[in-house]
């Protein structure tokens, strides 16, 4: 464990040195990610500016929801997104060979080797939106709610990672995962705009259990505003455990079946 931390620390230092080699490459993402965030906010305002309530959630709760999704997405973008999305290319080009021959967990290395400080401002913007939403709700939140919220954020960031990993692991078996990535993007886009509480019937099954993007921002929001039941907490934890198990097993199975590339 201690060795892994030392390794991660060296890896992240190296990554930062790498990014800082090019000034535009270092500062550029700050502007790009900020612009992307602003577009999302405008889109949100266009949709929800004139809607008073969705199944009991007012404008303030919706703002917390949007801020939460943004926060989890920013964590994803800052920490592991760029590493995980490089998996298909590594498999197809045989670059994974070099990871498998080193005495550190290849998945750990891939996950953290492309941290992206350019998305850090998104974390701050997201926090601002959440605070603004909380003020608009007009309720004060207990310490337990806040701690529960942060734990839920952590769990949902893991779930987000699991989903990304699961989809990229298909590259061990198929030529291209582009179409799966398109489904992922569409589902995320949808669940970013519509809170999970708005889904019914089959849609709820799909976005809560099969492609659980529907719970990613919904459960933490419910936790913060104090409406998440024990059943909801257990459901969230179960989904995270199941998908973590699936993602890691799929990765291990993929590595076992890996045939490398002849280049």
């Amino acid at each position: 464990m201690k060795n892994n931390f030392k390794f991660l620390s060296a890896l992240i230092k190296l990554r930062l040195s790498h990014i800082m080699t090019f000034r535009l490459g270092f500062f550029g993402p700050f502007f790009i990610d900020t612009s992307y965030f602003l577009v999302q906010i405008f889109a949100f305002e266009a949709i929800y500016g004139h809607v008073d309530s969705i199944r009991g959630w007012g404008h303030g709760e919706i703002l917390i929801f949007i801020g939460t999704f943004s926060l989890i997405n920013a964590l994803n973008m800052t920490i592991y997104f760029f590493g995980v999305i490089s998996i298909p290319e590594k498999i197809q080009t045989g670059e994974l060979d070099l990871y498998l021959t080193k005495p550190v967990n290849p998945l750990l290395r891939i996950t953290f080797e492309k941290v992206n400080p350019g998305s850090i401002p998104l974390l701050l913007f997201s926090a601002c939106i959440i605070i603004y939403g909380a003020k608009e709700c007009g309720t004060s939140f207990s310490g337990a709610n806040v701690i529960g919220y942060l734990l839920m954020i952590l769990l949902m960031a893991i779930l987000y990672y699991d989903m990304e990993l699961l989809i990229r692991c298909f590259a061990f078996f198929v030529f291209s995962v582009n179409n799966l990535v398109k489904i992922e993007s569409t589902a995320i886009e949808l669940c970013l705009k519509i809170p999970g509480i708005a889904f019914y019937g089959i849609y709820k099954v799909v976005f809560y259990c099969i492609l659980p993007y529907g719970i990613i921002a919904t459960l933490p929001t419910q936790m913060l505003i104090g409406v998440l039941s024990l059943k909801g907490i257990l459901f969230g934890m179960t989904i995270v455990c199941v998908f973590t198990f699936l993602a890691l097993s799929f990765w291990k199975y993929g590595v076992h079946k890996y045939e490398s590339a002849s280049c």
Binding site: N3, K6, F7, S9, A10, L11, L14, P103
Partner: peptide, 10 residues
Amino acid sequence: TLKLFQQIYN
């Protein structure tokens, strides 16, 4: 790179 490999191989 060597610094990273120092950690990889402990």
